[in-house]
Every structure is written in C-alpha cells, then in structure tokens.
C-alpha cells in the first residue's frame, strides 16, 4: 500500500491511471476510511488530492460557482455567496454526518461514493449541477446525475477524478431546498429524501422546476414528471397533492434496516410537498 500526495491534477490522474491494484482517491476520507476499516476495500494506492492547487477553493465565476473537490462541507456552509444562491445545496451538504464529519466530507466525495441515500446528491441533481472530470484523455463536464450508475458504482473511468462541482449563477426569483427523513435528529443516513429547485416568473408562478428523490431507487432519481406538474402553478393544494402522488409513484425503493418500501413511498411524497413549499418561499413565492 502506498500513500501519495500529488500537487497537480495531472500527477494525480497519471498515478491513478498507472496504478496496478485497486486505487482510492482521498479527499475527506469519511467514506473511504470506513470502508477500509470494514475490510470492504484494500487499496494498493491512496491518492490524497487535498494539496492539489485549486481543489480546496470555492470560486465565483461569470457562470456561477466552482466548488473544488477537496472543499469540506463545513467550508461550503461558511461561504455566504453559495449559501445565498443555493441554500438547498448547502443545507443538504451540511446534513452529512456530524460536525466532525463536516470538517472533512466533500460534496464530490458524497457524489462519487454513489450511495442512493447521499444527502447532497438530490439537491445537486435538482440544482442541475455539473461535474468537471479530469482524466487521462483530458477534461469533460457532465451532469451530476450521470455520475452514479448504481449503489457504489460510478460512470468514471480508470484514472478519472472529479476536480470540481459547478453550480449556475442564480436568476431572480429562484429557490431550492432539501429535506430528508431520518429516525433520529442527526447522525442517520437518509431513509428517503427530496430536493426541489424552482424559478418563478414575475407573477410568482413556477417557471422551471426540478425535483429529485434520494434513497428511493438504486440511484438518486430525477423525477421529471414531478417538475412538470409544478410548472405554471403557484403551489396550490391540488398541485402539491399531485406532486406527492407522482413522487410516491416514481419511487422504486427497497425494504432494509432503515425503512420499508411502503414507508419510503409515502414519506417521499410528504417530503416532496414540504420541500417544494420551502423552495417556493425561498424563491419569493407567496
């Protein structure tokens, strides 16, 4: 086993590409070290990306925000500009684990861990976030929902690293929100979760909407029909009821130690309704 600390993304990609045995990328380590401790992976190579220039930065660009892959969620939560523009993404990121875990975990790691229950991912998917992927054959930018392909599996090829997550600049009258259901008040993995991102027209009617569900299927679900039902509405009771029904119907959950199929279906609808109301209010809707 080797531990390396490259200073450039090219070096990191190069080392990962030529690794013979299993290799792991270390940013916050809050998933990786747990899996190593449990004996689920024994990497031959650990690539610590935290000293790579720029990966620890949040930058505001003309298009929006670029959040480096090594930015801990606690740091993200302290960034006023991102918090103002994307409160739903930030609140989701800040729900991962404890304060202790917040000091380490990253939204990129949360995405690449590819858990269907990852807290930040439904919010990122609803937000239409993109991932910048660096690899042996150059860089590409992809929608975050295309990264996880199943529990613990991603579309990333050997040698590829996500170096940043991109969030768009916000127009007027926009709001997003995230809610999850957990049995306790903290420290649990989401039993089911929902993220909603809305923009409103000048009359307060919903212009665009994206709804994503977590822990409801093998990957985070972007429920397009749920977004469509919101468009044009001012979130009246009938629309909320339809939203809940569509979200419950879209779920393809499992029975496990955290919840039942029936529970996840029902609560997905409840959360979608509640979270849409929060996003709507944040967008300035009344």
């Amino acid at each position: 086993m080797r531990y390396i600390r490259p200073l450039s993304i090219e070096d990191a990609v190069g080392e990962l590409a030529k690794a013979v045995g299993p290799a792991a990328i270390l940013a916050g380590g809050s998933d990786l070290l747990v899996r190593m401790k449990g004996g689920f992976i024994e990497p031959e190579l650990i690539v610590d990306i935290k000293r790579i220039d720029g990966l620890g930065d949040i930058t505001e660009t003309a298009e929006g925000f670029r959040i480096g892959a090594a930015v801990p969620c606690a740091v993200l939560g302290e960034n006023k500009a991102v918090r103002k523009a994307w409160p739903g993404v930030v609140e989701a990121a800040n729900l991962i684990g404890s304060k202790q875990v917040q000091g380490r975990c990253t939204i990129t790691g949360n995405l690449c861990n590819a858990s269907p229950a990852a807290d930040s991912v439904p919010a990122l998917v609803a937000a239409g976030a993109k991932a910048v992927v660096a690899g042996p054959s150059g860089k590409r930018t992809i929608a975050v929902e295309t990264v996880p392909t199943g529990p613990g599996r991603t579309s990333l090829a050997k040698g590829e690293i996500i170096e940043a997550i991109l969030l768009d600049k916000r127009p007027e009258h926009a709001g997003d929100a995230y809610l999850r259901f957990i049995p306790r008040t903290e420290m649990d993995i989401a039993v089911v979760s929902a993220g909603v991102n809305l923009t409103l027209d000048e009359h307060g009617a919903i212009k665009t909407a994206r709804v994503a569900l977590g822990a409801a299927a093998p990957t985070v679900l972007l429920v397009e029909e749920a977004g469509q039902v919101l468009v044009g509405s001012k979130l009246d009771e009938a629309t909320l009821e339809r939203l809940a029904k569509i979200c419950s119907g879209a779920c393809r959950p499992i029975d496990d130690k955290r919840g039942t199929i029936e529970f996840r279906r029902k609560v997905a609808g409840v959360l979608a309704r509640r979270v849409a109301a929060i996003a709507y209010k944040r967008a300035g809707g009344k």
């Binding site: 380590g29 401790k37 449990g38 610590d48 202790q100 000091g103 380490r104 420290m187």
Partner: peptide, 29 residues
C-alpha cells in the same frame, strides 16, 4: 466505533473538528 459515529476520538486539525479515526496519520503532515 472507528467509523466516525461516536465522536470519542474527536481532535481539532487546523482549526477543524474531526474524528481522528477518519483521518490518516499521513495526512497530519
């Protein structure tokens, strides 16, 4: 616990509260 779920190993690294069971010794450089 060794998995970041109990906080009994809490330390502060560069001003950030962390679980020392979820940090590699090598990272403290």
């Amino acid at each position: 616990c060794g998995t970041g779920d109990c906080g009994a190993c809490s330390v502060i690294v560069d001003g950030r509260l962390v679980c020392s069971c979820l940090v590699l010794g090598a990272e403290a450089e």
